[in-house]
Design a protein around this nucleic acid. Structure first.
Lengths: 237, 237
DNA sequence: GCAAAAGTGTTGTCTCTACACCCATGA
DNA sequence: TCATGGGTGTAGAGACAACACTTTTGC
């Protein structure tokens, strides 16, 4: 397709913000760029949208190609589209950002494509920056979206392995929100929410302490009434 | 920019869902298409993104060009990007949809560009369809977004003229949500929400009944705690 | 017994709902 | 005086924060 007056052909990409919880902190999957521009810098995984491909398919394909993760097994959703002129020095490149949440996971095998993909703590990038392109801003938007979604949906279970304790789930909330959550009230809240959790009948013994019941995620996707984070109130756009 | 393997040049457009309340029902701004494809059918206003233009600027420009409305005076935000192959018979066209909310407004002067732009009730399009491209789906998403935003933000004031009564504001909620709202509790709720409304000291006399105080919108943008719609609970994506 | 984490009970506070009731105007 | 919409008071229900308390394990 050629250019007309006031009609620019653009290149379209999809960038992925894949979040997980490891070692008690929130991590994001980043690659080290092997090519210019921003060679050697950290960036979100992503790639070009093919001619006859829908965006969700591109996101799933890139996820597999660049990280070896199975897109069918994790939660993901479209976040927002970024098109500020000059955001890519190569020219007019518009990117559709996706938020993905991955629970129990292997170290991402450097797939066919990317040089290396590694989990990094998100915290330094939320304040300091340091990512290629406008990926700092995309990451901030994604984290805020994830924080908000924990409030009124059951996506927190997507951060967990197939079987998990209520303590595991609570840690997800604490890590993503960055603040403590009362264990007693949390326990009652999630067990009282219809369809959030299903008991497996099994238990798990911690290093020390009473054994905890194991659950798997239930069929519910929304959480009503929502579980609001304590001090820093939600700030929708 | 030319095509490489696995790298398609796409055409990028912005489509606008401009909502307003008139005659007690929710209306959307639609144009009748003057060109193929879908000539003669109703569609959302929109247009191509220019080479050195950010998406918000495209949205604002199209709004002015196609409708004569002043983008600086109304609320708008990015909604979502639609890229399903085949959504536009002309080829690979990806569109970024915007939600805009307009309050007191003139009949849109058919601007320089569009053949005619007219306000139409949204209701038939939410169920039956009938719009060009995938604009039915976009409209549904936009209305659901607007309904959700009334719950936890103060955007409802964007549907109102500069000065309005609490009854006016309540009607916005009732029309957008499609269900009645208790006038007494609504009154207390919005007056109790810090920064939602500012008294002007003026009053307005209805055709019959006690005069109502006039307000203008306050500085607040979020509504905490939120005002939840009654029966059909929120269904976030 | 002690530490640690899981899980239960209880109380005060806050908010919402549902409604009764009063107020100010035009006809 | 009545109809109509604006605005206030209040009682009951539900949810939540805070925290005391019990349970179950390893050491």
């Amino acid at each position: 397709m050629t250019n007309h007056a006031g009609r620019a052909a653009t290149t379209l990409t999809v960038d992925l913000v894949v979040l997980t919880v490891r070692y008690g902190t929130l991590h994001v999957l980043l690659i080290e760029r092997g090519n210019e521009p921003f060679r050697g810098q950290l960036a979100l995984p992503g790639g070009f949208v093919r001619a006859e491909e829908d965006l969700d398919d591109t996101a799933a394909r890139e996820l597999t190609e660049e990280t070896g993760l199975d897109a069918g097994r994790l939660y993901f959703e479209q976040l927002r589209t970024y098109a500020t002129p000059g955001r890519d020095p190569r020219g007019r490149v518009v990117t559709v950002a996706y938020l993905a949440i991955q629970g129990f996971l292997p170290e991402p095998s450097a797939g066919t494509d990317a040089a290396d993909a590694h989990w990094r703590p998100v915290e330094p990038f939320l304040t300091g920056g340091g990512l290629a392109f406008d990926h700092d801003a995309i990451l901030c938007d994604a984290v805020e979206r994830a924080r908000a979604k924990l409030e009124y949906t059951t996506v927190a279970t997507a951060f967990c392995p197939p079987q998990f304790t209520i303590g595991d789930l609570r840690q997800v909330y604490e890590v993503v929100w960055g603040q403590p959550v009362d264990p007693r009230n949390f326990h009652r809240k999630v067990l009282g929410a219809e369809g959030f959790l299903e008991a497996t009948g099994q238990q798990r013994l911690p290093e020390t302490g009473r054994p905890a019941n194991l659950y798997r995620r239930g069929p519910a996707t929304v959480l009503t009434p929502p579980m609001l984070r304590p001090q820093p109130q939600a700030r929708p756009r």
